[in-house]
Amino acid sequence: METTMSVYRGDKNSGRFVDYKVKQFEGMVVLDAIHQIQAEQSTDLACRWNCKAGKCGSCSAEINGKPRLMCMSRMDQYNDGKPIVVRPLRAFPVIRDLVTDVSWNYEINKKIKPFKPKAKEADGTWRMQQYEVDRVQEFRKCIECFLCQNVCHVLRDHDKKNEFGGPRFLVRAASLEMHPLDTEDRIDMIKDSLGSGLCNITKCCTEVCPESIKITDNGIIPLKERIVDAHFDPVVWLWRKITGKPAQPTK
């Protein structure tokens, strides 16, 4: 079966969609189609990929308007007779064709204070229970595909890249902040540098995450609640004054 692919060709200044016909085979994914175009029709078509197994997070694009990994998007789900439209991520500047410049993300990452474990126990080791780390292990499934960053309207539509770190880095901050051995306090950093209050919990990040991380429910909202403890809850504030205890009991 022949399928038409409408692929964005261009750079950050200008571009257009070019139609290519590809031969569709059993089990084919969109990344296969892009590779077929590269091999047979347009050797200069730029795309980023690595694993073709949904684990390296390189092949992010927008397919028929939905942010997805090209290697995890079966062609047969789009068999509606219309061309399959493939465009680069919209929230980041296009370098060429399907390749975008995501380096802003790595700058944001530098703002997050690293893991600071508590002192070792008397026998020179650390102990934690599996059930306690399960929560942060969910966040560590992240493959840094940046699909969540791309779909988040705070970055995509409001372009708040100077004020907001985006869901990927709120999840990373959560993975450190909720770690049972960690002692660092990142709450003010999450509120002020990552701008967690700009997230209005509309959950598009969760909808697109290929690792099915419950970014909003398990990462961002629990962080927002911790920020309420530290900044907005007069009862917790009074309790801290009376007992002299920190906002977070286990830190």
Partner: peptide, 14 residues
């Protein structure tokens, strides 16, 4: 969910 336990990081040490 936060108040009842979510704010705790290390359940085995509280």
């Amino acid at each position: 969910r936060h108040v009842i336990g979510g704010k705790t990081d290390c359940f085995s040490c509280t």
